[in-house]
Design a protein around this nucleic acid. Structure first.
Lengths: 106, 106
DNA sequence: ACTTTATGCAACCTTTTGGTTGCATTTTGT
DNA sequence: ACAAAATGCAACCAAAAGGTTGCATAAAGT
C-alpha cells in the first residue's frame, strides 16, 4: 500500500494549503509558500519536507532560493487509485443488485 | 481545507487496506474486515473508527453484527479535488510555456 | 438457561507529528 | 568587504496517533 504515504502527506490542512497555492499559481519559492500559514517559516519548511518525501512536490534549487514544483505523476497516481476503488465498489453493488432481483425478499 | 481529513484517513496502510478490501468485495462485517491485518481486533476497530469519522465508510448495525459500507460520495470528493489541482497546475504550465515562447532565452 | 459470537469501551503506553527557538550557511546586492 | 536575504539544520516540547490489554454487553445458537 505505497499510496498511503501520498494521502498521508495530503492529509494535513497546512500541507494541503501549500499544494493548493502551488497549483493555483502562487509564486513558488520556499519562502513565499511559507508565508501566511499561521506557523513559523521553519515549521512550514518541515511540512514542505513531508510533501517532498511523499513525492508530491520536488525542490529545485536556483541560486539563493529554491523553487517548489508539483509532481503531477504522483497526484495522478493518488487520483487513479481512488477511481479504481470507486469502480470496484460500483461493480460490486451492481452484482448485489442483480442477485437481489433474482432472489426477492430478505 | 475540509478535504484534509479524508486524505488523512486514507493515509495509513492499514486503513487503506481496509478500504481496498471493502471495495474489492470482501465480506464486510467489522469482524471479518478486522482479521489478518497484523493488529488486534480492537486496534483494527480504532482504525475503522477513523474512516467513519472522515465519512469514508459508514456502519450499519444488523442484529449481532455490523456491516461496513463505503461512502462513494466522499471518495468522489477526494478524487475530484485532486483532479482540480492537476488541472490548475496544467493550465499554469501552459501559461508559462506561452510566456517563454514570447520571450526566448533565460 | 447457558455458551458463544460479534462487538463496544476505557485505560494505558510508546512513537510520531507538528510546532517552536536558536544558530549556521550561502547567495546576492551595495 | 559587508549587510541582507533565503535557506538549512538540530534540539527540544506538547499533543496526537497507533497500538495494546482487560472487561462489559447484547444477540444468536443449542
Amino acid at each position: 500500500m505505497v499510496e498511503a504515504e501520498i494521502y498521508k502527506a495530503l492529509g494535513d490542512p497546512i500541507r494541503l494549503e501549500i499544494v493548493s497555492r502551488l497549483a493555483g499559481g502562487s509564486p513558488s519559492t520556499i519562502g513565499e509558500l511559507s508565508g501566511n500559514l499561521g506557523i513559523s517559516r521553519q515549521g512550514a519548511r518541515k511540512q514542505l519536507q513531508v510533501l517532498v518525501a511523499a513525492n508530491v512536490v520536488h525542490l529545485v534549487p536556483r541560486g539563493r532560493q529554491t523553487r517548489v514544483v508539483l509532481d503531477t505523476e504522483t497526484l495522478q497516481l493518488a487520483r487513479s487509485f481512488i477511481a479504481r476503488l470507486e469502480i470496484q465498489w460500483d461493480r460490486r453493488l451492481e452484482a448485489l443488485k442483480e442477485f437481489a432481483e433474482s432472489d426477492p425478499g430478505e
